[in-house]
Structures are given as C-alpha cells and as structure tokens.
C-alpha cells in the first residue's frame, strides 16, 4: 500500500478544548430549552444558557466564556435551523455585546459585586446589541427602539434570575453539577 505523502493531520485536543466543548454542550441544552419556552414577544427569553457562560467566566476566565458563548450561538442556530437567518445575527450581536460588557464588569471587585452584577449588565448589553442590529439593519424605521423598555425590563428580570442561579451554584457547587464542569 502506498503511504500518503502527506502527514495525517492531527489536531491536538487540549484540556481546555474539552472543557469548552463540555460547557458549550451544557449551554446548548439550555438554548434549546429557551427556544422551547413560548414567549409573548419574539426575543424576550430567559436566556438560561448565559448561566453556563457566567459560570465559565467565573471559573475559567473570559476567553473560555467567549468560546462557550460563540460556540453555543453557532451550534444552537444549526440545531434550530436559523443559521445565517436574522435570528442568528441577532443572537450573535447580542452575544458579542454581552461578552464585551462582561470583559469590563468582571474587573469589579468580587468582594462587593457578585454574579448578579455580571449577569444584569450582560443581559442589558445583550438586548442593546440586538436592538441596535435590528434597528440599524433588519427593520430600519420600524420603530424597533420603541420596544426597548419592554426588552430592558425582560433583561433586568432574566439577568437577575440567572445571576442568582449562578450565585447559588457558585456558593453550593452541587455534586451533580460538579461532574459536568470537571470532565474526567
């Protein structure tokens, strides 16, 4: 048998890669849950997947959180069939803005500011990014910004709930949740 002149391409998989994959999978499950919950207004969602992003941020830093968030958006859009559709761009724009805000608010002293201080600004940034994209590109002049207060209220509520969940998980790392974070 002739040996291929090209060396087989081996992509080394680091522990961080596995970690990101595990966390992204968790976030993906929550994304599907989010999508399954009926919503009175398209775009108003609890954003449970961000719980995983915040846990990744607190445990492994911003880089891992960014990977988890973006992989989740990409894979979630593939599973939901919205890849490259408007919903995908909205999700991407929201994810990027909330990551940008997270990069800033994570510098807040942890002694005074807990996970809620991460999740609420991130949730508000998420809807701000989405509304900016929707207003500027998808539905210009359709008065999308008129919905801003409703979205802000939803983000405030969702951000608070998710932040409290993260705070609880950080304070009481349950045995079951632990195994998911620390893959063998």
């Amino acid at each position: 048998m002739t040996r291929s002149p090209i060396e087989p391409l081996v992509l080394p998989v680091t522990a961080e890669d596995r970690r990101i994959a595990h966390l992204a999978l968790l976030a993906l499950g929550l994304t599907l849950l989010d999508a399954a919950i009926p919503s009175p207004l398209p775009g108003v969602k609890p954003g449970f997947a961000n719980i995983v992003v915040l846990l990744a941020l607190l445990r492994y830093g911003w880089r891992v959180a960014a990977w988890v968030s973006l992989v989740r958006v990409l894979a979630g859009s593939l599973l939901l069939g919205t890849f490259l559709a408007p919903g995908f761009w909205l999700a991407l724009s929201g994810a990027l803005s909330s990551l940008a805000v997270l990069a800033v608010v994570r510098k807040l002293p942890q002694r005074w500011f807990g996970p809620v201080s991460l999740s609420v600004p991130a949730a508000l940034a998420h809807i701000a990014g989405q509304l900016a994209l929707a207003g500027a590109w998808l539905l210009p002049g359709a008065g999308v910004l008129g919905l801003a207060p409703v979205f802000a209220l939803a983000a405030l509520a969702g951000g608070t709930v998710n932040g409290l969940v993260v705070a609880h998980l950080v304070a009481h790392p349950a045995a079951g949740a632990q195994s998911a974070h620390e893959p063998a």
């Binding site: 807990g114 809620v116 207060p149 802000a152």
Partner: peptide, 25 residues
C-alpha cells in the same frame, strides 16, 4: 456567602433606573 453582595444592589438599582428611564421616554 450571600447570594447578593452590596454592589449587586447598586447594579440592580442602576438597571431598574435605566429601564424606568426607557419607559418614561
């Protein structure tokens, strides 16, 4: 560790204020 730290209340207040402003507008 408590779930809400002092700064969190400030952040929540700011968020509520922002939302209220948007509604007022």
């Amino acid at each position: 560790m408590r779930l809400l730290r002092p700064g969190d209340y400030a952040v929540l207040l700011l968020g509520a204020l922002l939302t209220a402003l948007l509604f007022a507008r």
